[in-house]
Amino acid sequence: MRTDIFARLDREPEPPKIEVPRMTRTRLALFGGTSAFYLAIVVAVLLSTWLVTLDWKIMLFRPYQQWPELHAFLDYYVVLGQRGPTAVMVAAWLGWRSWRQHTLRPLLSLGAALLLLNVTVGAVKLGLGRLGPHYATQVGSAELFAGGDIFPSGHTANAVVTWGILAYLATTPRARRYLSALSAVVALGVGLTTVYLGTHWLSDVLLGWAAGLLILLALPWCEPVIAVAEAWILGLRDRLREQLRARRRLVPSLPVAAGGPVPGLFPQRPTGAEEPVREKVGAGSGRAAAGRAAGLPTPPLAPPRTHHAVRSERSPVGPAGSRRPPHSRPATGG
């Protein structure tokens, strides 16, 4: 019996059909109220109202100097609002859920939410161009259209969307309540941490909370597009699988006998070269058998042919004795 975790996961029943959130009246009312709050914050900053004055009071108070013992911890805590690390962590969890539930909807929903976040928040940041507290030039000014990119707070909006998507994709009401509370605490803490560190105005954080909440509330409008994208991706996967199976069926399989040589590994002599020898041997044996049947004497067998060495293989033989001709006298001078 297999006891590993994958065997246990394979025996688990399939999850029930997941209900896709719809744009209900309550959600529409929340979307409208959050949109009004969003516009009110933008107008208040544009007109340099009391909200800008409050921004400057908090900035001059310098919370990071009032409570320096929190600085080390909050430097790490604010990472929960950075897009890169949080997107990787949440995508890993949603990828496991996609594999278990046999659907791409969790990952596609995260991708759609992050895409909306980059487009909407990025456009407002670049359009208003507000400078941060550390780069402010004039006390009491809203610091708009000065080439900055901090309004609304990207850390805050990303914390709302990245952790709120877990509550949006929850399959049970109980899990949705717990995850909603967890994401609200994380997003609230990340926003206030940026104010403590002096990297954002308070109005930046308020607008970041509203921007992230608007994206989560608008996600049901993206569900039809997510369903079409999922069907297209799964259809493409099935077509690729069929093509691979078809290619495997077209490859011929050559069976090899057990213990026999692999075909094509050792070259063999053509069969046509052996036929003349077989014919000669067969003809000679047939004539000998016919002679024995008729009572004729069997012709003697030809002696075996010996191998004669060619000239290049013979060893040179020299004449024996002296090479001088007989009865010759040595030539002398006397």
Results as ranks from 00 to 15, higher is better:
residue 244 L to M: 03
residue 218 A to S: 05
residue 226 I to Y: 13
residue 199 T to K: 14
residue 202 L to T: 13
residue 235 G to W: 04
residue 241 R to K: 09
residue 236 L to N: 01
residue 226 I to K: 10
residue 224 P to D: 12
residue 220 P to D: 10
residue 237 R to H: 07
residue 202 L to F: 11
residue 256 V to A: 01
residue 213 L to M: 07
residue 207 L to K: 02
residue 223 E to W: 05
residue 237 R to C: 05
residue 250 L to G: 09
residue 214 L to G: 04
residue 247 R to A: 13
residue 247 R to S: 11
residue 205 V to G: 12
residue 258 A to H: 02
residue 255 P to G: 02
residue 240 L to H: 10
residue 218 A to Q: 03
residue 242 E to Q: 09
residue 214 L to K: 00
residue 266 F to D: 03
residue 198 G to V: 14
residue 255 P to C: 02
residue 199 T to E: 14
residue 201 W to H: 07
residue 212 G to R: 06
residue 240 L to K: 12
residue 220 P to C: 14
residue 221 W to M: 14
residue 209 W to T: 09
residue 225 V to Q: 15
residue 231 A to G: 11
residue 259 G to V: 03
residue 224 P to L: 14
residue 227 A to Q: 15
residue 225 V to N: 14
residue 259 G to P: 05
residue 244 L to T: 02
residue 208 G to I: 10
residue 203 S to N: 01
residue 213 L to F: 07
residue 247 R to Y: 11
residue 215 I to R: 06
residue 246 A to V: 10
residue 207 L to E: 03
residue 204 D to R: 08
residue 235 G to Y: 00
residue 199 T to G: 13
residue 225 V to I: 15
residue 256 V to H: 02
residue 201 W to R: 06
residue 204 D to Q: 06
residue 205 V to F: 12
residue 223 E to G: 07
residue 218 A to F: 03
residue 204 D to V: 06
residue 197 L to H: 12
residue 248 R to S: 05
residue 270 P to D: 08
residue 259 G to W: 01
residue 233 I to K: 08
residue 248 R to T: 05
residue 212 G to D: 09
residue 201 W to Y: 08
residue 234 L to H: 08
residue 234 L to G: 08
residue 197 L to F: 10
residue 239 R to V: 06
residue 248 R to M: 04
residue 266 F to C: 03
residue 247 R to W: 12
residue 232 W to C: 08
residue 209 W to Y: 08
residue 202 L to R: 12
residue 214 L to A: 03
residue 202 L to M: 15
residue 264 G to E: 00
residue 202 L to I: 14
residue 228 V to T: 15
